[in-house]
Nucleic acid binder design. Structure first.
Lengths: 206, 206
DNA sequence: GAAGTCATGTAAAATGTTACATGATTCA
DNA sequence: TGAATCATGTAACATTTTACATGACTTC
């Protein structure tokens, strides 16, 4: 019904910028200086429930931002032998960040193998489905533990934290209250009509 | 000269398969035949809250699956002049699908520009933050409308539908009950300490 | 002495998105 | 006539992931 028409305009430079890793790095640096390693750590600990990034994305992103003059770094010989590059925003970077934040649309995309697996549950063993739910629940508890401690009192940080908790708790609650019945149904179906979905089926699956 | 041998070629079958568009196409075809166009429609209508795909991904995926012998198609001259290719799973495809479903880990990744924007709210105008929340709420209501009608009584479909509703409703509820206070706080902060996070920036972003 | 953490990065491969290209049919 | 829908696809581009490469310092 809702056919999404891309609104991308004539001039390529007018296109909505995407919140990519560069923007996120810029954003994190907007709250204080950090090394590439630090940024990755933050993704892992605090932001992973809504954004993921690896070193292979972060280091090139920082290099590109430095090239564009949006960030600078000073080198420091820390505990390791390798000197750390401590990045911080330049004035141009601060402007760039504001421009990006002002322009990019509030997209929210989920790429969930977990949900797809649940959708296809009839094609899997009930044990495997159950194990996947357990795994997902563990992951959620891990996220929730991180989110349970407030860090900054900044409105944005708190609003985001609250949203994360609300969503993750709703997910966990749903999974906990429905898994038993779900697995039971799957087992029964498997017992009675094991071939149900293994032959070509006519009809709308949706 | 170091010659690097890619390991992909050696052990590609040992890596955890990812639920990519191919898997999803395979999965959808597991419930019945469909054209590339159909698959895209289903993404748009029913699955978009957890998986997105465009024609540019789907058609090549189907072509590759046909090449591998996991799907076949029959051509049909429908209402349009262009013949439609109606795809269906082969036996090999059914096996492949089961293998993929049995092996791939239940990843769940969110890439949310929206949440990031909220996190960085102090660097945006309160009006823009408010508008972004409105936009996100509208999107959620759109998804919820689709999810409100049960389609198939399949356990997997119903479980997934329920999960989607629970998560989206929790999100909407959180946004609705907290937005007022959030925007108010942002406005106050901007009034009292407008340069808090904007220091090096002169002028107000629209 | 092994394992783990801190810390940087590159190259190649995989994957996904965007813009373009085509064209008939249906409906207002 | 013009817009929307059905329907397929490609080429170029952008982005992300994975494996590889390095190495000191700390803790068990």
């Amino acid at each position: 019904m809702t056919y999404i028409v891309p609104i991308y305009t004539l001039a390529s430079h007018l296109r909505s910028p995407r919140v990519d890793i560069k923007t996120v790095c810029l954003g994190i640096l907007g709250f204080g200086e950090a090394t590439g390693y630090d940024i990755k750590q933050r993704f892992e600990r605090t932001y992973r429930h809504f954004f993921a990034a690896g070193y292979g994305s972060i280091y090139p992103a920082l290099a590109a931002l430095a090239e564009s003059g949006f960030v600078t770094y000073r080198e420091e010989r820390g505990p390791g032998a390798r000197p750390r590059k401590i990045y911080s925003l330049t004035d141009a970077g601060r402007v760039e960040l504001r421009i990006r934040l002002a322009a990019c649309p509030p997209r929210h995309r989920v790429h969930s193998d977990f949900i797809l697996l649940m959708f296809m549950a009839e094609m899997m063993s009930p044990e495997r489905v159950d194990a996947a739910i357990t795994e997902r629940l563990n992951e959620i508890h891990c996220y929730l533990e991180h989110l349970s401690k407030p860090r900054a009192k900044r409105a944005g940080a708190e609003f985001t934290r609250g949203l994360g908790i609300a969503v993750l708790e709703a997910t966990a609650h749903y999974l906990k209250t429905n898994r038993m019945q779900f697995i039971k149904t799957l087992r029964e179906q498997q017992g009675s009509a094991p071939q149900a979905l293994q032959s070509p089926v006519t009809g709308d699956p949706a």
